[in-house]
Amino acid sequence: MLAPYLLLFVLFTVVPVAISLVISFTYFNMLEFPRWVGWHNYQQLFLEDDVFLIAIKNTFIFAVITGPLSYMACFLFAWLINGLQPKVRALFTLLFYAPSISGNIYFMWQLLFSGDSYGYINGFLMKLGVIVEPIQWLTDPKYILPIIILVQLWLSLGTSFLAFIAGLQNIDKTLFEAGAVDGVSNRWQELWYITLPAMRPMLMFGAVIQITSSFAVADVAINLAGFPSVNYAAHTIVTHLMDYGTVRFEMGYSSAIATVLFIMMITMNVLTQKLLRRIGE
């Protein structure tokens, strides 16, 4: 029964990752046959490519802020909404999930942070007398990163939120009755000793999704700050990968970037899963 999935997984995930790893040790420009260069691509990444170091810094800032905050927000909102009536719960679930499936979701933020006096935030601040001239929100390196982090947090209430809602709905109600008999006396004890341990698979799934999305930030930065952004203020590892892979077609170098990103994601996933295993102990 698992054979069809395993076949597709190996062909379209394991094999491409392995090929990318091999190509990362070569010079490959899509026109010539790959030429083996050993560790040269990795040495260039960390010792010569200043833009890549900026991308690593920005990516870690994204991941450290948006990852934990969005993860906790997804669970908190799911936990609060779960106690509502079914119709009200369905409405709030749609409202929270809608941003992640919307089409032109960046249009609203571009209007809010427009750099002229017609931008909503500039117009509001000028009307209050806080500023006398428009602020270039999306072209000033001082503001670009915080704005993109804000938008990413807004967009992050998606798949993990639905997974947590589903997990809360499927908890066996008899566990709470057994907990009351054993001395669980309030909602916080129920949360720590019953709800969270019963939701470990969903918590693991949500952690993987949030880590992946926080390290793979690209669309938000490109749509709001441009590609590339001013002074690379919103440059991330994925946008750096896109630059070398889809613009310059330096496939060996871009594969090295992808390998570094893959190792970072795997490491964070392993650490997060070790932390989640201790819940309820």
Rank of each mutant, 00 (worst) to 15 (best):
K274R: 15
G183R: 04
L111C: 01
T13Q: 06
V151Y: 13
Q273T: 09
L53V: 02
F33S: 08
F262Q: 08
G167L: 09
I222E: 10
Q273F: 11
I148G: 10
R35H: 12
L2H: 04
G119I: 05
F249D: 01
L45Y: 03
G38K: 01
I144G: 09
A256F: 01
A218G: 08
K142M: 06
V260G: 05
F107P: 02
F77K: 09
F124D: 00
T236I: 13
V15A: 09
L84R: 09
Q152D: 15
I211G: 11
Y143T: 11
L155K: 15
D50A: 12
I279Q: 07
P201V: 03
S70T: 09
F9I: 02
N269V: 15
P197M: 06
G38I: 05
F9Q: 00
V64P: 04
Y71A: 07
L80Q: 10
Q152V: 05
V230M: 08
N223T: 08
Q152L: 03
N269Y: 00
I144C: 06
R35D: 13
M126I: 04
L6R: 00
W192I: 11
Q110Y: 01
Y244Q: 15
I165A: 08
A256Y: 04
S100I: 14
I148W: 14
K127H: 10
W192K: 13
K142P: 00
G206P: 15
Q210P: 10
L203I: 10
I65E: 10
A225Y: 12
F164N: 05
V10F: 10
E32S: 13
P146V: 12
I209K: 07
I131D: 02
A198G: 03
K127G: 11
E32I: 03
R278N: 12
L2I: 10
L7E: 00
K87D: 06
L153M: 14
P68D: 06
I81H: 06
Y232E: 04
L157G: 07
G206W: 06
V17L: 15
A207F: 08
G83H: 08
N82G: 07
F107D: 01
V64M: 13
G123V: 03
D116A: 04
Y42K: 01
I171S: 07
T236R: 06
G115V: 01
L69W: 03
I65Y: 10
G158Y: 08
T139V: 01
C74K: 02
T267A: 15
I266W: 00
T212H: 03
A180P: 05
I54A: 02
G123D: 03
L276M: 02
A180W: 04
L162P: 08
L45A: 08
W109R: 02
H40W: 02
I194Q: 11
Y27M: 04
L94P: 00
L203A: 09
R187E: 15
I144N: 10
P86E: 05
L271I: 14
G115L: 02
L53C: 01
V14Y: 00
V220H: 13
N269Q: 12
E133K: 14
S117A: 14
T159Y: 12
G103E: 01
E281W: 05
I131L: 06
G115T: 01
D172R: 10
M264I: 14
Q273C: 00
L94F: 14
Q44M: 08
A234M: 04
M268N: 06
Y5F: 15
A256R: 05
K274A: 14
F215M: 15
